[in-house]
């Protein structure tokens, strides 16, 4: 699974992207966020306020119960602030 991080999620986690292989019980976005929180201090800090984290699966805005699979591109970012 390809993960992308933007804005303060990128700076707190300390990387813009990575390939991960989550355990099989990571079935949806909520599971993925919980699993990521356990990957280290940067992740725990970045994901401490999950309500401020938006997720896109394959470049589509996703809900917490949106399924995620091995070959998906999943992006984590704060609410958008363009324009």
């Amino acid at each position: 699974m390809k993960l992308l991080y933007f804005a303060w999620l990128r700076t707190r986690i300390g990387r813009a992207e990575e390939e991960v292989d989550p355990p099989t019980d990571v079935a949806n976005v909520e599971d993925l966020l919980r699993w990521l929180q356990g990957r280290g201090a940067g992740y725990a800090e970045a994901l401490a306020r999950p309500d401020l984290v938006r997720v896109a699966v394959n470049q589509e805005f996703a809900a917490r119960d949106t399924p995620v699979a091995r070959d998906d591109e999943v992006a984590l970012f704060p609410p958008v602030t363009g324009g």
Partner: peptide
């Protein structure tokens, strides 16, 4: 402003800060 994935970071005397939605 609410749908397109852009993020702004502002530079002030106190440093860089991400703009809040």
């Amino acid at each position: 402003k609410t749908q397109a994935p852009f993020w702004k970071s502002e530079s002030t005397a106190a440093g860089e800060q991400w703009v809040k939605a």
